Amino acid sequence: MKIVIVEDELAASEHLEYLLNRINSDIEVLEVFDTVKAAVNYFSNSNKAELVLMDIHLADGISFEIFEQVKIDIPVVFTTAYDQYALKAFKVNSIDYLLKPIDEDELTDALTQFTVQVKEKTQGMDDGQLKGLLNLIHGKTEKKSYKNTFLVNLRDELIPLKTNDIAYFLIDVGQIKAVSKHNQTYTVEGKLEDIEESLDPTIFFRANRQCIVNREAIVNLKYYFNGKLIVSVNPVAKERIVVSKAKATEFKNWMGS
């Protein structure tokens, strides 16, 4: 099975490759792309891909933009932390829809579904999958639970820190720091990508590769050069928080929601 991965987070794409290798060592990952532009360039030309694993949020936009620019006639498995895109995903060749963090058993099921469709020469979701997506959209399935408390390091102690008390997370000299609304800084174990997946996306936003911000900590937004945004927060961050042009519209929509 020859697979192309479209994912803008390096840790996420590496995790996918790891899971694929665990599931079936014969799976070959042909390419990994992190932008809409790169994916469009690839699928505009002849290629050997049989299946695409595609994140919805990419470095330069939303992956659905790919389908507006080039025809992809092979099945797609979408991966994302945001379930509101489920129905749209179904409309563009999707054979499955996986919510992050990716579960190995669910990924295995998606690959099995792909194999079945190849044998039966069919494409697209069956009625059961469509019903599941519709239930997901309308909130009829169990809602995802988010982390309420982080166990953080303070000197030689581990203390519980309520998620709602965290103004923002940031990478500082290779470590993840949680800055509280009272301007206390704590060290948090793990990766920023994993922390992002554990947070309620209506409250926290991944502003850039170094920072996740709580909407309640945001004081204002300032326009920066080349369509970027500067996020002012309270407490004031040690480093300037800049949102890229590619994420600026999404960030403003999130702030206004």
Rank of each mutant, 00 (worst) to 15 (best):
G124K: 02
E193P: 08
Q129K: 13
K252F: 01
N148D: 12
V116L: 15
V236D: 04
T249G: 01
W254G: 05
K162P: 02
T112Y: 11
S63C: 09
D194Q: 13
W254L: 03
E7W: 14
A49V: 07
K252Y: 00
N226E: 06
S180N: 03
I56Q: 08
I27G: 04
D172N: 15
I241Y: 00
P160L: 10
T80G: 02
S94Q: 01
G227T: 01
E65I: 00
A12M: 06
T79K: 06
S257T: 14
T202K: 07
N21K: 15
N41M: 12
Y223A: 14
N220S: 15
I3A: 08
T163L: 03
N24Q: 04
L192S: 03
R206F: 09
A38V: 03
N24V: 04
L10W: 04
V92R: 15
D165K: 14
V173F: 07
P235C: 11
I23Y: 10
G174T: 13
K131E: 15
Y224E: 11
S244H: 08
E106M: 12
T185G: 00
E50R: 14
T122L: 03
T149H: 08
V173Y: 05
I195H: 04
L99Q: 01
L87G: 10
Q129M: 06
S198N: 10
E196A: 14
K144F: 02
V70K: 07
D103R: 05
A38L: 06
A12T: 01
A237N: 12
P75C: 03
V173D: 09
L87R: 01
I212W: 00
Q210V: 11
F114S: 02
D73C: 09
V4Y: 03
L170C: 14
Y85G: 10
N164W: 02
L158M: 13
